[in-house]
Simulated assay, not measured.
Amino acid sequence: MPNLEIDEIDRKIIAALQSDGKITVNELAETIGLSASPCARRVRLLEQAGIIKGYAAIIDQKKVGLPISAFASIKMERQREDALERFSKAVARWPEVVDCYLMTGQRDYLLRIVVKDLEAYEQFLADKLTRLDGVASIETSFALKQVKRSEVLPIT
């Protein structure tokens, strides 16, 4: 589907859904000042355009036994397309990696890895990350405290 030009009503819909993804269409329509049918149609168009990619519960990682967030900076031996593609495909299969970014600067990738303890991180390194061809170096930092986390984009 081609890019959808979003207007002020779409922005209100997006803001409301980012705030509460479980809101009903009727509640959403009332919140943004639109009737239910056009509101539902707009939500469907936003979904079809890929602007709304899905809906998910936000889970407290500590309360489910995964208190450790490790940030691994990866330097590749070479930045060849096939090596980058191989790395990306491998990382996509690993549930411990919750975020992965191809970066500019000194490092090629930045990963956020969520695990239950340091031993689990060490196991992840030994069994997965260090076994990937093309990885030249790995630098890891551990988060001491989460100051802010948000899935809400500043759409204005």
Rank of each mutant, 00 (worst) to 15 (best):
L111Q: 00
T104Y: 10
M103N: 09
R112M: 09
A126M: 07
G65C: 04
L66R: 08
E30G: 15
Q106A: 13
Q123Y: 03
A126T: 06
E27A: 15
M1I: 07
E77R: 15
L110N: 01
S150F: 02
F142S: 01
P154H: 06
V91H: 01
I6W: 04
D133F: 07
A29K: 10
M76H: 10
A143R: 00
L4V: 07
V64S: 09
G33A: 13
E122Q: 14
I6V: 10
R93Y: 06
S150I: 02
A70H: 09
P38T: 09
L132W: 06
E30I: 05
F124W: 04
A92C: 09
I9E: 05
T156S: 10
A56H: 07
Y101V: 04
E85K: 15
Y109S: 00
Q146A: 10
E122Y: 07
G65Y: 05
R42A: 11
N26E: 12
I52A: 14
R44S: 12
S69Q: 11
E77M: 15
G134T: 05
I23L: 14
K12I: 01
A143V: 05
K22D: 12
Q48S: 13
L132G: 02
I58Y: 14
R131I: 08
A83G: 06
P154A: 03
T31L: 08
P2K: 10
L17P: 05
F142V: 07
K12G: 04
I32N: 10
W94T: 00
T140C: 05
I6K: 00
W94D: 08
A29Q: 09
I74N: 04
L4Y: 07
L84C: 10
L110G: 04
A92L: 14
R11W: 01
A15G: 06
L102P: 06
Y121D: 03
L28H: 10
A90Q: 08
S141I: 03
I113K: 02
L111T: 02
V25W: 03
Y109R: 01
I51L: 14
G21L: 04
I13C: 04
K63N: 13
V97G: 05
K62F: 15
V135E: 00
A72V: 09
K145L: 02
E47F: 11
K53S: 15
K116R: 14
F124A: 06
E139D: 06
M1H: 08
F124H: 08
E5W: 01
S19T: 11
Q61A: 11
